[in-house]
Amino acid sequence: MSATDPDPGAPIAPGSPLARKLDDFAAPSLSVGFADRVLAAAEARAAPDLAPLPPLRRAPARRRGWRVGQRVVIGLASFTALASAAAATGLLERFDIPVPSAEKVWASLTGKPAKVAAAPVAPPPVPAAQASAAAALAPVEIVGPIDTPEELSEAFRRIDAVRDGRFAARQSRIDQRIDAEIERRRAAGLRVPTSEEEAQLRERIDNAQARRKQRVDDVVAARREELARKVESGEALTRQDVLQPLREDAQALQRQQRLRELRRLSPEERREALRRLPPAERRALIEEFRARRAEAAAAPSPAPSVEPSAAPTPSE
């Protein structure tokens, strides 16, 4: 914005420095053979589109009496099916409603003693890999206090198993999405990435995932050292101590990062940035700042740890 153009949203004047800058953004032309490729793709999908739709199956007009009767019959059949299913699954016995078995009914008719019911058939065993994957995706099981290093390491082992399972599941989902997208593009007649491009894409995603995992691992390692020290000093930890603080630490790290970013902004920019934040996050940041300011005020050193003019105030 210049002094001669007070309205920042005014149209961009031709020949102005901004217009000259924008005009440097040249667009290439369509590649040779583009129309032929589109025509080929259109031809490939022309056949199913041209297939005539089947005629509508309109039900013949029926009398009202039969329609009502039909609904009654369907309702009765549904109720019977549900009742049979409830009896078969033992639901009625849970409510203390006696349900005679077929053997008992037959014995009462013939006068012979009822046969002993056969042992229930065991369900087929679940494949080991599937079972371990499901177990890994289940919540971490930690029961009772943790007050020995062995128990703590066992808790960490269970957490790691769940984390590895979740990481593998995430990888699998990413692979499935990439495959589905390639398949969608192929079906739509669009350009599909070459094997090299696909490998590059997967490598980039893998690298990003690895970096993310590394960041989390660093936070987790620091937290675990702290927990181990607590256990060694004789403190008993609960499930919440082991699991919950990880998430809180991650949020605290994010808040610290955000505070650092805010300090670098001018007061106007900071006020605007705070306004754009969700209310809960804004409140948390302000609370964090208040706590830091209180710590700085209580500290014996005369040098302030945060710049008062640069930090967000509660009124902001």
């Binding site: 369509l30 999908r45 593009r185 739509a188 007649g189 350009r191």
Partner: peptide, 10 residues
């Protein structure tokens, strides 16, 4: 950009 134009035309 070419993909987008192709998809729009199709």
């Amino acid at each position: 950009a070419e993909d987008i134009v192709q998809e729009a035309v199709l």
